[in-house]
């Protein structure tokens, strides 16, 4: 099996257009911004775009799997801040005497992966909708991390972890390469593992998936743990980029991640889209943000524009024939 979505019946023009629309939007956006301000295509600016896409891309990889499954994960910010908190408190920092080095990174990923698995367990064992389970976990994660940080900002002093953001390889900061690695890993999981195919199958139709012998509960918990893994990676990158962790390190991240996933063309109903779509979605969101700064638009308006993007993308991508009732 290569692609899980073979073009068995041929595609209508509309569907083909829908599939290519995100890429077209990205190209159009780059062209328009370049015309308005040629500084956009300078290598220095492109590196800046790549750098600011690193954290959203890593986050959105995790969220993509959850949305592919037809669920939603609102705990992005809680999970990210847990990982950032564990990293700064266990590595060399200015609040305690710990200096675990890269073990701190491993512990951070373990913590957010465990939080993801807990989310999945809560959702499947208590049988409550994912948006409610993850809304609760969002604030639990945020509360725990702010509590552990004592409500203040703790600086990350470990030079090797800081190097994730400061050191460069082939001109790009290491965090960009880590994010790229996360993308390749997500591709491998989606297209070449059983878990990836089962997630897609659940999103396409849960009853059918169950009848085909897929263990729903196990796949769901694994998917939420996988998402937690990517959120943890993003948390470490965020802590390295900012050089500290505080109460607001995760602010606005959920929003950017959801925007990227749906703008990339992954349907909220599940079963359609994937991590490649999300890569394009992340680039659209980041390029738009960078372009607005280049054009001198107030940074405060960015959130509003992202909100409008979500509405437009979801409204265009929903397959209304399948949807009788929308809640």
């Amino acid at each position: 099996m290569s692609m899980p979505r073979p073009a068995l019946f041929g595609e209508s023009n509309r569907k083909r257009l829908r599939r290519w629309a995100p890429a077209l939007v990205l190209m159009l956006l780059c062209t328009l911004i370049t015309i308005a301000n040629p500084n956009f295509i300078e290598p220095r600016n492109l590196i800046r775009v790549a750098n600011s896409a690193a954290v959203p891309l890593t986050l959105a990889m995790g969220l993509t799997f959850i949305i592919l499954m037809g669920s939603i994960d609102l705990s992005v910010e809680g999970s990210l801040s847990i990982a950032a908190m564990v990293t700064v408190l266990l590595a060399a920092n200015d609040a305690n005497a710990n200096s675990w080095g890269w073990f701190a990174v491993a512990a951070a990923i373990a913590a957010s992966t465990a939080l993801g698995a807990l989310t999945g367990a809560i959702q499947t064992f208590l049988r409550i909708p994912s948006f409610m389970a993850t809304l609760g976990i969002w604030f639990i994660g945020l509360g725990v991390s702010v509590y552990m940080l004592g409500g203040s900002a703790v600086r990350l002093m470990d030079p090797s972890i800081r190097d994730l953001a400061l050191a460069r390889f082939l001109g790009f900061p290491l965090s960009v390469w880590v994010a790229l690695g996360a993308f390749l890993l997500a591709c491998a999981i989606q297209y070449h593992t059983r878990l990836g195919r089962h997630i897609l199958a659940i999103g396409g139709g849960e009853e059918v998936a169950e009848l085909s012998g897929i263990k729903l509960r196990r796949v769901r918990i694994a998917a939420f743990a996988l998402a937690g893994f990517f959120f943890g990676l993003a948390g470490i990158l965020a802590a390295a980029q900012l050089g500290r962790s505080d109460a607001v390190i995760a602010d606005g991240r959920l929003f950017a991640a959801v925007t990227a996933v749906v703008v990339g063309g992954t349907a909220l109903t599940g079963g359609e889209g994937g991590v490649v779509n999300t890569l394009i979605g992340v680039l659209i969101v980041t390029v738009l943000g960078n372009g607005m700064i280049l054009l001198g638009v107030s940074p405060y308006v960015q959130q509003s524009v992202q909100g409008l993007l979500i509405i437009a993308a979801v409204a265009l991508s929903l397959d209304r024939l399948r949807l009788q009732i929308v809640k």
């Binding site: 959801v258 959130q303 909100g307 509405i311 979801v314 929308v326 809640k327």
Partner: peptide, 16 residues
């Protein structure tokens, strides 16, 4: 636009 309410309000919340 038939957008699920939690996404619709997440988005309008962002706009606001």
């Amino acid at each position: 636009l038939k957008v699920p309410s939690f996404v619709a309000t997440l988005a309008t919340g962002g706009v606001v």
